[in-house]
Amino acid sequence: MNEKTKKPDLKFKIVDIIYIVMMILPLLCGILLKILTTPESTEAVSITGARIFWEIELSSTRFFNIIISEAQINSVLVLITIAFVFLYLTHGLKERIELKRQHLAEIIIEKVDSLVGENMGDRFGGFQPFIIAIMALSAFSSLITLIGLYPPTSDMNVVGGWAILVFFIITYYKLKCGPVYYLQGFTKPVFILAPINFISEFATPVSMAFRHYGNVMSGSVIAVLVSYFLALGSRFLFGWFTELPLLQVGLPAILSVYFDIFSGCLQAFIFAMLTMLNISGAFDTEEYDRRKKKKLEQKKLKNINGGI
């Protein structure tokens, strides 16, 4: 194209601004909700789970009730934010790069492409969107603590939901070679091991969920404990001087760099890696090829017979 790069027109800019506003709006809503619903507490620090906003009673036992909690609402807010972040990044894609954000989008896509290609092989080419979605959701959910919101990943229910989703995909790929072959897989290598294999089938999602939940949860518990002891220490050291907990200024932020930023991103990476490895390990390529070949031959035979 010979024409010079002209300035983006007004419509383009307005759409951009809408995207940016929609990125920030859910997080502001989360902060507002937190401010409005947090009860006043006299304790300096407290460890609580996700706050429950409302509860639909279905039976007398609490187990079957439908619960809308802080973690679920925060995860939906994170979903909206991520959707608009990616809409913003991919807005105005051109063959000749004009905007800086297109470089960033291309870097992300290329990295995930190479990661998925390395770990899953060519057959699972369509899995990049799923992997990038899981990675972004997990990472942003953990990073949401930086603005003071309750991280959805430190609630067992949210992470458990993701793990169950992955479990369904694994089972789907195992069933691709036929239900008989799937059931036979339990009796390998020896028939006696069938119960153990059956348990280990369900251990995969449980361990994935516990790993992610435990890491984020332990980080927040340790952060709260450290800030509590810093408050005690500052009362002991500067109690004669001022009531303010001076030691709490800045020191917990060092822990936060590890527990919130590093650990959150690492867990997102590990969750995505395990998803990829489990899914690609569940699919028996050779058996699938063999079955496909057999079916094709049968079809050919049928066609020949029908033709005659």
């Binding site: 516990f210 790993r211 435990g214 890491n215 332990s218 590990i270």
Partner: peptide, 12 residues
């Protein structure tokens, strides 16, 4: 990460 799992079970 995989070795950590047993520790995290205990933590939970």
């Amino acid at each position: 990460a995989i070795a950590e799992t047993t520790g995290l079970y205990a933590l939970v």
